[in-house]
């Protein structure tokens, strides 16, 4: 596929949609649907202006902190649960219960428990996005190929070496699937955790703008969140493509044979 064609396919639809929005809203006098030009101005002046440092950066830092905590806890726990049948049988009902709780309802409780600071928001994000990571890790660890496992055993590869060279790489395609789901949950929870008792952040600023009838700015905040999510997803894909290059190659080889 030529580069022109690829660029066309990648950017064609977004450009068409933006153009449609631009022209459809160009002469809008409706208070709630300001012209796109105004929204983009707000995006530039506010979100890429003072709000970038005041709101966007704190949000992203909390997001990354919560996500990092979730990754460490969920992968560690996932390996333990996936490895031991007894642990799995013991923990499974409890985990299913916690998983079933929609994380947003935890905000009021966590507020009481952990106060209104960054800690509470990080915990909410971590708690919510660890489930897909945990469950996928468990499945990935359980599904380690029996022949590979026997091979490792006959070469007496045990303990941490087994974990590093066999279990984690073998489970990594599943773990990455969980990490990807977890990331989108984390973004949602980042916003939600800022809707209550916050003094900065993207979610806080969008609600603030809406309450003060800064309509263009509210729309711009939504665009900003979209852009942020898009950027994070791209970064994620970059890392994943590097780490799972072997897996994609293996799959291609299996398909063509």
């Amino acid at each position: 596929m030529s580069i022109v064609r690829r660029l066309g396919l990648t950017f064609g639809l977004p450009i068409i949609l933006l153009a449609a929005w631009w022209f459809a809203s160009a002469n809008s006098t409706d208070f709630f649907f300001p012209p796109l030009s105004e929204i983009l101005t707000a995006l530039k002046d506010e979100w890429f202006g003072p709000r970038l440092l005041a709101d966007v950066v704190p949000s992203v830092l909390r997001l990354l902190a919560g996500y990092a905590v979730a990754v460490v806890v969920a992968v560690t726990l996932g390996v333990v649960i996936g490895t031991s049948r007894t642990v799995r049988a013991t923990l499974e009902p409890v985990l299913e219960f916690f998983r079933a709780i929609p994380p947003p309802v935890l905000v009021p409780i966590f507020l009481l428990l952990f106060g209104i600071g960054d800690g509470m928001k990080i915990i909410v994000i971590a708690f919510g996005c660890m489930w897909p990571i945990l469950l996928n890790t468990v499945e990935g660890v359980r599904a380690v190929d029996s022949v590979l496992s026997d091979t490792a055993r006959t070469y007496r590869i045990t303990g941490t070496a087994r974990l590093r060279t066999l279990v984690l790489p073998a489970a990594s395609p599943q773990i990455y699937a969980g990490l990807r789901q977890g990331l989108s949950v984390a973004i949602i929870l980042m916003v939600i955790s800022e809707l209550f008792a916050a003094s900065n952040g993207l979610g806080f600023a969008v609600v603030q703008a809406q309450r003060s009838f800064a309509i263009a700015e509210t729309w711009a905040g939504m665009l900003m969140l979209g852009l942020l999510g898009f950027l994070l997803a791209m970064l994620f894909k970059l890392v994943e493509n590097r780490q799972l290059a072997w897996y994609h190659g293996l799959r291609r080889a299996q398909r063509s044979s």
Binding site: D145, V147, L148, D150, T151, T165, L166, P169, A170, S172, W246, Y247, L250
Partner: peptide
């Protein structure tokens, strides 16, 4: 099963 006894990530 040679396909399953070599580590595909190595």
């Amino acid at each position: 099963e040679y396909g399953r006894s070599l580590f595909p990530w190595m």
